[in-house]
Amino acid sequence: MKIDGTSLTPVGSIQAANRISSMDKKAAEKAADGVNVSDKAQFYQILLQKVKEVPDVRQDRVKEVTEKINNGQFKVDANAIARSLLFGSE
Score class of each variant (00 low, 15 high):
residue 87 F to M: 14
residue 74 F to L: 15
residue 47 L to D: 03
residue 89 S to D: 09
residue 51 V to I: 10
residue 85 L to V: 06
residue 39 D to Y: 04
residue 70 N to Q: 14
residue 11 V to H: 05
residue 82 A to H: 10
residue 29 E to P: 04
residue 85 L to K: 11
residue 90 E to V: 14
residue 2 K to L: 12
residue 66 T to N: 13
residue 35 V to Q: 06
residue 53 E to F: 01
residue 38 S to F: 02
residue 81 I to T: 12
residue 1 M to G: 12
residue 39 D to F: 06
residue 43 F to T: 08
residue 24 D to Q: 13
residue 58 R to F: 07
residue 62 V to P: 00
residue 24 D to L: 11
residue 2 K to I: 13
residue 53 E to C: 04
residue 4 D to P: 00
residue 31 A to H: 08
residue 19 R to F: 12
residue 63 K to R: 12
residue 23 M to P: 00
residue 36 N to C: 05
residue 82 A to E: 13
residue 59 Q to C: 05
residue 75 K to V: 14
residue 87 F to C: 07
residue 15 Q to S: 07
residue 35 V to F: 06
residue 70 N to F: 05
residue 64 E to H: 08
residue 75 K to N: 11
residue 16 A to Y: 03
residue 15 Q to F: 11
residue 68 K to L: 11
residue 65 V to N: 00
residue 85 L to S: 03
residue 13 S to F: 04
residue 38 S to N: 03
residue 37 V to H: 01
residue 57 V to A: 02
residue 34 G to Y: 08
residue 11 V to E: 02
residue 72 G to S: 05
residue 68 K to Q: 10
residue 71 N to L: 14
residue 78 A to R: 12
residue 64 E to V: 01
residue 6 T to I: 10
residue 66 T to I: 10
residue 35 V to Y: 03
residue 68 K to S: 03
residue 3 I to Y: 10
residue 52 K to P: 00
residue 56 D to I: 06
residue 12 G to V: 01
residue 79 N to A: 15
residue 55 P to H: 04
residue 9 T to V: 15
residue 64 E to F: 05
residue 57 V to C: 01
residue 33 D to G: 11
residue 34 G to W: 05
residue 9 T to Y: 04
residue 64 E to W: 02
residue 76 V to H: 03
residue 13 S to R: 07
residue 13 S to L: 08
residue 26 K to W: 03
residue 63 K to M: 02
residue 43 F to V: 04
residue 56 D to H: 02
residue 82 A to T: 15
residue 56 D to G: 05
residue 32 A to G: 13
residue 44 Y to S: 11
residue 17 A to D: 09
residue 74 F to Q: 10
residue 28 A to W: 06
residue 11 V to M: 08
residue 11 V to Q: 05
residue 83 R to L: 08
residue 30 K to M: 14
residue 87 F to T: 12
residue 55 P to S: 08
residue 12 G to K: 01
residue 74 F to Y: 15
residue 88 G to S: 04
residue 84 S to I: 11
residue 11 V to K: 06
residue 20 I to S: 09
residue 77 D to I: 05
residue 52 K to L: 09
residue 41 A to P: 01
residue 14 I to Q: 02
residue 1 M to P: 06
residue 39 D to W: 05
residue 13 S to K: 10
residue 35 V to S: 06
residue 50 K to C: 06
residue 87 F to Y: 12
residue 20 I to F: 10
residue 78 A to F: 12
residue 33 D to E: 14
residue 47 L to M: 13
residue 40 K to Q: 10
residue 16 A to G: 04
residue 15 Q to I: 09
residue 52 K to C: 00
residue 44 Y to C: 08
residue 37 V to F: 03
residue 1 M to H: 10
residue 29 E to V: 12
